Simulated assay, not measured.
Amino acid sequence: MEQQTPRPSDFRPGLVSGAVNLAKNMFGLLMSRIELAALELAEVRANALKLVALFVLGAIVALFAIGYWSALIVYLSWPALGWKILLILAIIFTAIAVGILLYVQSLLREGKLSMPATMAELRNDHDALL
């Protein structure tokens, strides 16, 4: 009986085997991070769409309310104040607009549209690899 010698494809040297295993692990890690990011992006997208829809609906209703109330206030106040009522309403509406802008900025600073779990995992991966 002839003894068969192992072919080069039957075994892998230690360095090559380690590199292949490292590449497999890196690929698996990359895929899990992509899946996590996809899940969080879907959640952020759904929340962003709700926020946009509510904002549009609220803006339409608010504009109608502001228009009707403003017309009523101007009509009732014109005999007593004249043009000054227009200035008063302009100042009030400007203050309200600035308040809303500041509120939206605070919501964005709180990170309502961020992906904290994905970013934390990516930071952990970065720290572990470097």
Rank of each mutant, 00 (worst) to 15 (best):
M1D: 04
E2G: 07
Q3K: 10
T5Q: 15
T5W: 13
P8L: 05
P8F: 08
P8S: 07
P13E: 10
P13G: 07
G14W: 10
L15T: 11
S17W: 06
A19C: 05
A19K: 07
L22H: 07
A23H: 15
A23Y: 15
K24N: 08
K24D: 08
K24S: 04
N25K: 08
F27Y: 12
G28E: 15
M31Y: 10
E35D: 12
E35V: 08
E35F: 12
E35N: 09
L36C: 04
L36N: 04
E40N: 08
L41A: 10
L41C: 09
A42W: 14
A42I: 06
E43M: 06
E43L: 06
R45C: 06
A46L: 13
N47E: 12
A48S: 12
A48D: 07
A48V: 07
L49N: 12
L49P: 04
V52N: 08
V52F: 10
A53R: 15
F55R: 12
F55T: 13
L57G: 10
L57P: 00
L57A: 09
G58V: 14
G58S: 14
A59V: 10
I60L: 15
I60Q: 15
V61T: 15
A62L: 10
A62H: 13
A62G: 04
L63F: 15
A65V: 13
I66N: 08
G67W: 12
Y68R: 07
W69S: 01
W69R: 03
A71P: 02
L72P: 00
L72C: 00
S77T: 04
S77W: 03
A80E: 01
A80T: 06
L81P: 00
G82E: 04
W83N: 02
W83E: 01
W83L: 03
K84A: 00
I88F: 11
I88P: 00
L89W: 03
I91G: 03
I91M: 08
I91A: 10
A95G: 05
V98P: 03
V98H: 03
V98L: 08
G99C: 02
I100N: 02
L101R: 11
L101N: 07
V104R: 11
Q105N: 08
S106E: 13
L107F: 11
L108M: 08
R109A: 06
G111A: 03
G111I: 06
G111R: 06
K112V: 11
L113D: 11
S114G: 14
M115H: 03
T118G: 02
T118E: 03
T118K: 01
M119P: 01
A120R: 05
A120H: 06
L122M: 06
L122R: 01
L122I: 03
R123M: 02
D125Y: 04
D125Q: 07
D125M: 05
A128W: 12
L130E: 13
L130P: 09
